[in-house]
Computed example of a mutant assay.
Amino acid sequence: MGAVQGVSPWSCHDASAIAMVNWNDPVLLLRNYQTFDKLTHVAGGIYIWEFVTHLDFDWHVLTGARKYRWTYLLYSGCRLSALFAVVTVFTGFDAQYRIKCQAWVVFTFILTYLAFVFASVLIVLRIMAIWECRRLVVIVAWVTWLANTAFYIHSVITARSTWFPEAGFCVILHSIRSRINIIATLVADLVLVTLMLFGLLRWQHAGQFRGVCRFLYNQGLIWIVVVTLAEVPSTVMIVMDLDDPWNLMFQVPELITMAIGATRIYRGLADYTSITELRTLPGNTQKP
């Protein structure tokens, strides 16, 4: 290990110091994978707690105590996909014996991206309602969503994994292949949020910026914060391309942050207003 021991890229004051680190050193690679493993378990544990503590919302919908809306299927899809993704990740990391890592990584990617897809659809439907189904905006929103989904599919197809005997778990190979997907996700979410906020500002200029409209605008601002906190760290690390564990380090926290943010925003709107209130807005025929 030699000079690499004790070196942390975050203690360096310039890029040249990072470049001096041998990121292919097996000992350093193992240590980084162990860090990745711990961070993943912390993030996954947070999401499991979040899932369990909000089961009352699901119970109220299923028992009829809360009005059922078809968008609840998207909400549930996001929650369950994220939960199954966490469980699948834990399976690969906590296996006590060699498993079929290629099958593991494919299921992990599918479940992870399903959670992102459901979260994005909720935003697209809200954009349609806010813009009163204006054709150009609807086309832009759905094309953005479809393009991002295509990148997800490509990422699943190209995903590769193998067993790492020194660490005792599956590792994802050639993580740099996900660079374009990570960047595309950030761009797509920013486009969708921008469309939503500009649509709400139209109501402000028309003197309709009150009640549920103001609430949706505040939710839009919150979603920008969620997208930034969740996706920027992953994007920065994949662009820097230090090594596979650092490229992947913040992707599980990204999933958790996005899933929690999307589902909490959905529950917040469900608690704030009813479908009848939304229909009082000019031209609005969409459910929240």
Results as ranks from 00 to 15, higher is better:
residue 32 N to P: 12
residue 32 N to R: 13
residue 33 Y to H: 12
residue 33 Y to P: 03
residue 33 Y to D: 06
residue 34 Q to R: 12
residue 34 Q to P: 12
residue 35 T to V: 12
residue 35 T to A: 11
residue 36 F to K: 00
residue 36 F to I: 04
residue 37 D to T: 05
residue 37 D to V: 06
residue 37 D to Q: 07
residue 38 K to W: 15
residue 38 K to N: 14
residue 38 K to A: 11
residue 39 L to R: 02
residue 41 H to E: 04
residue 42 V to P: 02
residue 43 A to Q: 06
residue 43 A to I: 08
residue 43 A to M: 09
residue 43 A to H: 05
residue 44 G to Y: 00
residue 44 G to M: 01
residue 45 G to M: 06
residue 45 G to Q: 07
residue 46 I to R: 04
residue 46 I to E: 02
residue 46 I to K: 03
residue 47 Y to A: 02
residue 47 Y to N: 02
residue 47 Y to F: 13
residue 47 Y to R: 03
residue 47 Y to T: 02
residue 47 Y to W: 06
residue 47 Y to L: 05
residue 48 I to T: 08
residue 49 W to D: 06
residue 50 E to P: 01
residue 50 E to L: 09
residue 51 F to P: 00
residue 52 V to E: 10
residue 53 T to G: 06
residue 53 T to I: 12
residue 54 H to Y: 13
residue 54 H to P: 08
residue 54 H to Q: 14
residue 54 H to L: 11
residue 55 L to P: 06
residue 56 D to S: 15
residue 58 D to F: 00
residue 58 D to S: 03
residue 58 D to G: 00
residue 58 D to C: 02
residue 58 D to A: 01
residue 59 W to M: 14
residue 60 H to W: 10
residue 60 H to E: 14
residue 60 H to Y: 14
residue 60 H to T: 13
residue 62 L to D: 14
residue 62 L to I: 14
residue 64 G to W: 15
residue 65 A to S: 12
residue 66 R to K: 10
residue 67 K to P: 13
residue 69 R to S: 08
residue 69 R to A: 01
residue 69 R to T: 06
residue 70 W to I: 08
residue 71 T to F: 01
residue 72 Y to G: 10
residue 72 Y to L: 11
residue 73 L to F: 13
residue 73 L to C: 14
residue 74 L to H: 04
residue 75 Y to F: 09
residue 76 S to Q: 13
residue 76 S to I: 15
residue 76 S to A: 15
residue 77 G to Q: 03
residue 77 G to A: 05
residue 78 C to S: 08
residue 78 C to M: 03
residue 78 C to K: 00
residue 78 C to D: 04
residue 79 R to E: 00
residue 79 R to V: 01
residue 79 R to W: 00
residue 81 S to P: 01
residue 81 S to G: 05
residue 81 S to C: 07
residue 81 S to E: 01
residue 81 S to A: 06
residue 83 L to R: 08
residue 84 F to A: 07
residue 85 A to W: 05
residue 86 V to L: 06
residue 86 V to H: 05
residue 86 V to A: 05
residue 87 V to Y: 08
residue 87 V to C: 09
residue 89 V to L: 10
residue 90 F to P: 00
residue 90 F to A: 10
residue 90 F to I: 04
residue 90 F to C: 07
residue 91 T to E: 15
residue 92 G to Q: 02
residue 92 G to Y: 00
residue 92 G to S: 04
residue 93 F to T: 07
residue 93 F to Q: 12
residue 93 F to H: 15
residue 95 A to T: 02
residue 96 Q to D: 13
residue 97 Y to W: 15
residue 97 Y to L: 14
residue 98 R to I: 10
residue 99 I to S: 02
